[in-house]
Amino acid sequence: MVSRLEALGLSLLVLYFAYHAFAGEKGLGRWSDAQLELEDRKADLARIEADLTRLRTDIRRLTPGSVDPDFVEALARDKLAFVYPNEIVLMASAGSIAN
């Protein structure tokens, strides 16, 4: 028969391993946190890859020899605020623009 001391020792050993399986550095709690972090990183990667694809397309549209004039005009209007002499520019405050 197993003595009380042996039973106590075995119980403490089981509790020790059970604690570390759930709350330890590499336990189930940390694993679920790591899964959430992984999903966040995957979303970041997808955003970065979409930006990279867009930038590669923009580079291709601005490559000498195959420049897209409509794209250059859109960039000049957007980034440099270029307008044609006969155009009328309407200014609106940021608070008055409705989505």
Rank of each mutant, 00 (worst) to 15 (best):
M1E: 08
M1N: 11
S3G: 03
R4H: 07
R4D: 13
A7Y: 03
L8D: 06
L8K: 05
G9M: 02
G9L: 10
S11W: 03
L12N: 05
L13S: 05
L15W: 00
F17S: 02
A18M: 04
H20R: 12
H20W: 14
H20Y: 10
H20G: 05
A23T: 06
E25D: 08
K26M: 08
K26D: 11
G27A: 02
L28N: 02
L28M: 10
D33C: 08
D33H: 11
D33I: 12
A34T: 14
A34E: 15
Q35W: 13
Q35S: 11
Q35F: 04
E37H: 04
E37Q: 08
E39F: 01
R41M: 14
D44F: 06
A46H: 11
I48N: 12
R54D: 11
L55Q: 15
R56Y: 09
D58F: 13
I59Q: 12
I59H: 05
R60F: 10
R61A: 08
R61Y: 03
R61M: 04
L62D: 02
T63W: 14
G65M: 03
S66V: 04
D68E: 06
P69G: 01
P69M: 00
D70V: 13
V72T: 06
V72R: 09
A74S: 10
R77S: 04
D78V: 15
D78R: 15
D78A: 14
K79I: 09
K79W: 13
V83Q: 00
V83S: 02
P85K: 02
N86K: 11
I88D: 01
I88H: 05
I88T: 13
I88Q: 09
M91D: 02
S93Q: 15
